[in-house]
């Protein structure tokens, strides 16, 4: 399901194609495990990557498609010089992640919904975010610096 290529020292590319069903989440978990074997990063960073990919994928599965048909969701991960690039393509309803409003995390409990929380997590854990709509496809390109900055104490977690 996944293709992994180690192009040169420090350069890694991994591509997976998922269907729009939550059961395919396991393929993301497997891909992150493969990534962990190919690049030098902490378990903490891997959890963040896991979270970013799960939230992007779950969001498109839950909200991306109005029909009941099967759709492909393509995810590629490439790491070069300590920068991880995550690219996701789907042919779902237009969704501009960069325009998605942040949830109100300080309102009263009774009024607090869960909408937008997953995308809020994605934005928190990435360093750059771009969105394109091309040929009826959503294309999201995210960049994450893999160098450890403020979480050194969590390396073992």
């Amino acid at each position: 399901m996944g293709v992994i290529r180690v192009k040169a020292m420090g350069k890694v590319k991994l591509s997976i194609t998922l269907k729009n069903r939550l059961a395919d989440l396991d393929k993301i978990k497997t891909a992150v495990l493969k990534l962990s074997g190919a690049i030098d990063c902490t378990r903490r960073k891997l959890k963040e990557i896991d979270l970013i990919l799960e939230e992007l994928f779950a969001n498109v599965v839950h909200h991306g498609f109005k029909d009941n048909r099967e759709h492909d969701i393509d995810i590629s991960l490439s790491c070069d010089d300590g920068i991880l690039e995550i690219r996701m393509e789907d042919d779902g309803e237009p969704f501009d992640i960069t325009a998605s409003p942040a949830p109100d995390t300080r309102c009263a409990l009774d009024k607090r919904g869960i909408g937008g929380l997953g995308i809020h997590f994605v934005k928190h854990f990435i360093d750059d975010c771009k969105y394109y709509r091309k040929k009826n496809k959503n294309i999201i390109v995210l960049k994450k610096n893999m160098a450890e900055k403020t979480h050194k104490k969590n390396d073992s977690k």
């Binding site: 959890k47 979270l51 799960e54 939230e55 779950a58 409990l109 869960i114 997953g118 997590f121 977690k157």
Partner: peptide, 20 residues
Amino acid sequence: LEYISSAGIRVMLKTTKDLK
């Protein structure tokens, strides 16, 4: 618990509201 996503948070939010 090693990992949680918004799906796990959603269950805890719902439970908290219902228990209240």
